[in-house]
Design a binder for these strands. Structure first.
Lengths: 246, 246
DNA sequence: ACAAAAGTGTTTCCGTTACACCCATGC
DNA sequence: GCATGGGTGTAACGGAAACACTTTTGT
């Protein structure tokens, strides 16, 4: 019996792209009005090579021999931001493989979500002419990104917003020590809402494992705020819900 | 200036694997005690080709020329179960790319979660010697699967359980018409808990867009149950939480 | 009439909300 | 003392849990 011709199996290259969120004052961009307000930003690079040379894009790159997608993401994160692997959790968002998404041929990319505290300014990476912290709002408002990266940012934002509800990732936006007010501002910034200070304080303080008091205080122009660190819990006992549904 | 040697970029093949859950009485397996109870099952095939010939594995296959991962998943779903593309939602779980996960070489797989109503028995697919609905419990208890498929099943189960909380996918386990008791049994089966009938009834009936009454009734040995169909809502207004945390 | 299963009523409980108020520090 | 911001008290509200009870059918 003659075996039917085996269907051709596409050969692919794989890239890992990073959606790195932080809360900070954005870098000045051409055409952007200067701002001092802290807001949700994403690390973007301008591409140094074709295709899309000169366009804004997510940091990322090809998976190398012997690497997994996650290995490549950790490596790229370090190259782009100096953040050591394992210092903050990387989570897969989705893998994008639509035919034609990359003009070079069949290249699938796995997007990773990372959430970082306010870092020192990112340095330009190996294949990036420059890097900048750009307000996520700009991307949602139509800032052109290379490839399907705008879609990836939207998907990653939706994931990050959803995870704020049920997990403790909000602490990843803060440094090793933070006040409850700072933690509340994470929610307010990412969700774009106002939360009641007193009630938020009780809720997160009562949720065992979310935050742990350090005993230290932060001096301000009023009563000093107690400093906390992230606890062991990953999931919240009870979800944090914004009064206005997202 | 001499350009440093470009790091070698691995060449990959991509597969799409399907984790298809349903609630039914399992197929009889060698070594399994006969059972008539409905429980959470997954569609597994026995591999007809090396590697892992004869072992249980998830249905799936290589992505072909011009296909995306999602296209391949839809095609495989149809080949394995006869379910038409788009008839039920497919969702990416995660992409697995650890070096060595496939002895044939660098092959990454994207796992898709599908939730199906109780179907007629699955027919053996193209490259599968046989297919069976196997209790998920068996996989959790250590049933050997090919590749890293046991890990994939655990990840997909966690995703399905989480999505029951906040989305309307529970209706995907039911047919086009179902009673509220059947819907409740979906939650009870997937979560492994008991829910209060009266309270569940009110909750899902009050959640606008979750289920819609059809006016028809199902005759039983007691008072007839009203039949419902799935509504337009995708997200639940208020999450359904099991009394005992998962 | 009785059994069986669906669905409703009702009370209790508990977390959230809204907001008044108190506390700790700098100037 | 007074301004500033952190943190606590408290009463009203609302959804969920527990479970008694009513309704609708088959036999």
């Amino acid at each position: 019996m003659i075996r039917a011709q085996r269907p051709s199996h596409q050969v692919w290259k794989l890239t890992a792209d990073l959606v790195i969120f932080t809360i900070r004052t954005p870098d000045l961009l051409p055409g952007g009005s200067p701002t001092t307000a802290r807001e949700l930003c994403i690390l973007l690079v301008t591409r140094g090579n074709d295709p899309y040379r000169g366009a804004w894009a997510l940091p990322g790159g090809f998976v190398r021999q012997g690497e997994s997608l996650g290995d490549a993401a950790v490596r790229e994160l370090h190259e782009e931001t100096g953040i050591r692997g394992g210092a903050l959790p990387l989570e897969q968002v989705k893998t994008y493989s639509e035919p034609g998404r990359d003009p070079r041929g069949p290249i699938a990319t796995c997007a990773f979500l990372a959430i970082a505290p306010d870092l020192a300014d990112a340095e330009a990476g190996t294949d990036a002419a420059s890097a900048a912290w750009v307000p996520v709002r700009r991307v949602l408002d139509g800032l052109d990104l290379a490839f399907d990266h705008a879609e990836i940012v939207r998907d990653a934002l939706a994931l990050a917003r959803a995870k704020l509800r049920f997990t403790t990732i909000a602490t990843s936006f803060c440094g090793p020590r933070f006040t409850i007010k700072q933690l509340r501002e994470v929610y307010e910034t990412v969700w774009g809402v106002k939360l009641d200070g007193p009630n938020f304080h009780r809720k997160v303080a009562d949720d065992t494992g979310f935050i742990v008091p350090t005993g230290e205080n932060e001096k301000t122009s009023g009563r000093p705020a107690a400093l906390y660190r992230a606890g062991d819990a990953v999931m919240l006992d009870r979800p944090i819900l914004p009064s206005t549904p997202l």
